[in-house]
Design a protein around this nucleic acid. Structure first.
Length: 231
DNA sequence: ACCCAGGGCGTTG
DNA sequence: CAACGCCATGGG
């Protein structure tokens, strides 16, 4: 437990040395960050960039404009993010909540204390645990540890927990071992994402350059990855 | 042609 | 609460 705590920090430093600071989340405004968080669900980030650009050009990266725009227009603009009808509806549902309950000021929501903020975010349709935590960490700038599919994949391969852990359990694993720190939490998740994107794909490049060594080879040895052969 | 990417929700058993 | 279907683009 205490040695795992040290390992997590060593892992983090190794990643940071390799990738350098990533300064996540890439967005010009807080609204853009939140919109990106919703749009990126189960989609490659590249597709989100396209959609954000479309929304920006159309002048819809604005709470009231987004709330009032025709559903079909929004759907067309975010088409590249795969579930475009659903996501258009959720983006607009979110914008309307901000208009109706927070005076149209996103700030009024995001300035709430993390616990209360998380509860209110989860109450919005289209925002689940991961998205809510991303918004808290990168939008509201409060230290909450974000975990995701990459976190599960990488750290289960490394043998820290099972491939089938739930979100809460996985999040608690880190929260119990790391001191809450905004920069650390922001960078840690960004680094995991960087690693997942480049080296830990199901069929990825060689692990020779993987900053964590050869964790990926264990996965590739067979199918769904039994973690029985992890050190 | 086939695989999969930074989820979330509604419905079942 | 676990499991599963649904949503439905674009790049490798």
């Amino acid at each position: 437990m205490d040695d795992q705590r040290a390992e997590l920090l060593r892992l983090y430093r190794r990643l940071l040395d390799h990738f350098g600071p990533r300064h996540w989340w890439p967005a010009d405004t807080t609204l853009e960050m939140v919109v990106g968080a919703i749009l990126t669900q189960n989609v490659a980030w590249k597709n989100v960039v396209t959609a954000i650009e479309q929304l920006k050009q159309a002048g819809l990266l604005d709470i009231s404009a987004l709330a009032e725009a025709p559903r079909e227009q929004v759907a067309r603009l975010v088409r590249s993010t795969r579930y475009y009808n659903q996501k258009a509806e959720r983006l607009q549902g979110f914008a309307r909540r901000i208009v109706d309950e927070y005076g149209g000021r996103l700030e009024n929501l995001l300035s709430l204390e993390a616990g209360e903020l998380r509860k209110r975010l989860l109450d919005i349709k289209g925002i689940g645990k991961e998205t809510a935590d991303c918004i808290i960490l990168y939008g509201a700038q409060q230290p909450i540890f974000v975990v995701d599919a990459y976190t599960r994949r990488i750290f289960s391969r490394l043998g820290y927990f099972s491939e089938k852990v739930g979100y809460d359990e996985m999040q608690a694993f880190f929260a119990e071992r790391l001191e809450p720190d905004l920069y650390l939490f922001q960078e840690y998740h960004a680094q995991i994402d960087g690693l997942g994107n480049r080296y830990c794909l199901a069929k990825g490049p060689s692990c020779a350059e993987c900053p964590l060594g050869d964790c990926c080879t264990y996965y590739r040895t067979e199918g769904k990855g039994n973690d029985s052969d992890v050190p």
